[in-house]
Design a protein around this nucleic acid. Structure first.
Lengths: 350, 350
DNA sequence: TTGTATGCGTTATCAG
DNA sequence: CTGATAACGCATACAA
């Protein structure tokens, strides 16, 4: 900076003024400074700037696991709007481990990020942490899950509604022995999806078999295990609602291993509608979640806060939508006309 | 820091010494300082520290697109070893756009990152940028692709060999009309995969039909388009080698749309072996790439450099491996016994 | 409109 | 071993 000041024959303060447009500078000087900046390839030190301003252009995103195929789209959405507003993204994987979450939160505070975006591991202690982060002046918006007691901004997906319509679909197709594989029930989205399931059953006056409710971890492995338990029960459920697609993969796997065919022997519905859902065998009926949009929405909300918005805390819920494909069979005679069609498509799939 | 110095009744310099273990401090004082730190919940300012040391604990990872399902595992690998060594990861998506790449590179330099990890968009101009970054003292390791003229550290996957074995497999199964859908040929990994394909054909003295070589963009959409072109040609290729799984999905899609069955009408081999490859219809034969390991290896290499290793530039190539599943049919009578088996499994898949 | 000077929170040098 | 103190590169209040 001193160099460019010398070169443009102005003071160092003036340089700062033209860089930040923080005071009117005579056009002539301005040009000299700009030229010097270009010719020296000057880049302001974000470190010094951040230290002085007590705020950087970093946005920290804390999430469970980028390896879960639902999250990359969310991240991408965030990154795209962040980039446009010249914010930079630092990424943290917590594995739903509150310890790692806290550790990231504490350590990265000292980078004075412009804001936090978090898909919480949903520890209640966490809420306090987040609150204190928010209290310290740095905005926080939660994504996908609402931590217990969190009163700040949050953008969610219509979990309950999506789950409800998935279950309704199963009921409409004549299923009565419905099982569900939930996510970890300390996560709000897992609870909501279970509630949608229960509500649909209650409305249809179909009893719920407690054993048919299995809790798993939103990953394929645990979905596989839960499905194996479920598929060995007597009577065997005719349909399984897996609360995310990864677990639905596990169900598919388990069914195959037990020599059961989907959808003839067991129907499956997933949640997420990951990219590959239409390419599984059979193509998976699933509740679509707008991942990318989740990211952009959250990022925009955060941007508003960074820009000083004092609006009351927002709670935005994005719609979900059931995508009907071929993993659900019709059991009721009334619907049987649809069966040949499904068959034909299943063949085409191969 | 001043607060904790006062509280522990030592100088501010001493505090720094105990925090960084940069000088012997009398145990008694040390404890007083540590206590004060704990009770005040002190976190050193990474900004000030970075400014002073001219180096932060940030590692910047620049990559094409986190949304491409091959990359999350790589990122995760990186993040895991980075986290263990208390380095933090900032993530950049370039969409293979050299402009965005350059922009990230320039802007983030001023954060004085400890190192760079880049999956290059493979612009040659980029190489210069990277070299200059490296020259400025910050280590750089390239991942997955070797930019033209890059002489620094790089960790790759055995693309040529993987591709070669995939093609050999096709040949062994009796295919002679082989088509290939390559990635963008300005990327070294795309070129290498094509070379493995060509070498296998040459070795088997099978002629290469120029039209059967289609260049696409490593995404589903372009794979779909290329496959559509391919499958309309006469004679129609009996097998298509898609140079990544995303494009293989596109091929599957195109085939289905044209009323062709895989593998009866057209065999398909992919590359990457993404998680869902075994759940597609039919399960996709694909060349496995160790994504997570790619990340950890690169990160460890970078760590060594950060720790001052002056070893000559490394070029590490991780092995790939063909995973045979059900998307390739046997055309040669000699192999026909395998056919019923495949059929049976295909049925089980549904 | 422009220049000067202070301090942001650390580390590191150098006396003591 | 410990304490002053000078940078690090910048933004900003204030003076000119």
């Amino acid at each position: 900076m001193r160099q460019i000041a010398e070169r443009a024959d102005v003071s160092i303060g003036t340089v700062s003024h033209v860089v930040n447009d923080t005071a009117k500078v005579r056009e002539k000087l301005r040009q000299r400074v700009l030229d010097a900046i270009r010719s020296l390839g000057y880049q302001p030190s974000q470190l010094a700037r951040g230290l002085r301003r007590n705020q950087t252009n970093i946005v920290v995103m804390i999430m469970p696991d980028i390896t879960n195929p639902f999250f990359p789209a969310v991240v991408r959405g965030v990154e795209d709007v962040a980039y446009k507003h010249s914010l930079r993204l630092v990424l943290c994987n917590t594995d739903n481990d509150p310890g790692k979450e806290t550790s990231y939160l504490n350590e990265l505070r000292s980078y004075r990020p412009a804001g936090w975006l978090v898909i919480p591991a949903a520890d209640s202690e966490m809420t306090a942490q987040l609150r204190s982060a928010a209290a310290s002046g740095t905005p926080v918006v939660c994504i996908d899950r609402q931590p217990p007691g969190w009163k700040g901004d949050v953008v969610l997906v219509a979990n309950e509604a999506g789950s409800h319509s998935a279950t309704q679909h199963l009921l409409r197709m004549g299923h009565r022995q419905l099982a569900v594989i939930t996510g970890p029930l300390h996560l709000t989205n897992a609870v909501e999806r279970l509630m949608g399931f229960k509500r649909a059953l209650a409305e249809a006056k179909v009893p719920i078999e407690p054993e048919y409710i299995q809790e798993a971890q939103f990953n394929r492995q645990s979905g596989y295990q839960a499905a194996t338990r479920l598929l060995r029960m007597l009577p065997r459920p005719t349909a399984i609602f897996a609360c995310n697609d990864l677990m639905a993969m596990g169900v598919l796997h388990a069914a195959r291993e037990l020599g059961l065919h989907c959808p003839e022997d067991v129907s499956i519905v997933g949640f997420d509608d990951l990219d590959f859902a239409e390419f599984t065998a059979p193509a998976l009926t699933s509740v679509h979640q707008p991942g990318y949009q989740l990211g952009t929405t959250a990022a925009r909300l955060l941007l508003d806060r960074i820009d000083g918005s004092q609006a009351p805390a927002q709670k935005i819920t994005l719609p979900s939508e059931l995508k009907i494909r071929h993993s659900v069979a019709s059991l009721s005679p009334a619907n049987s006309p649809s069966k040949p069609k499904r068959r034909a498509e299943a063949v085409a799939l191969r």
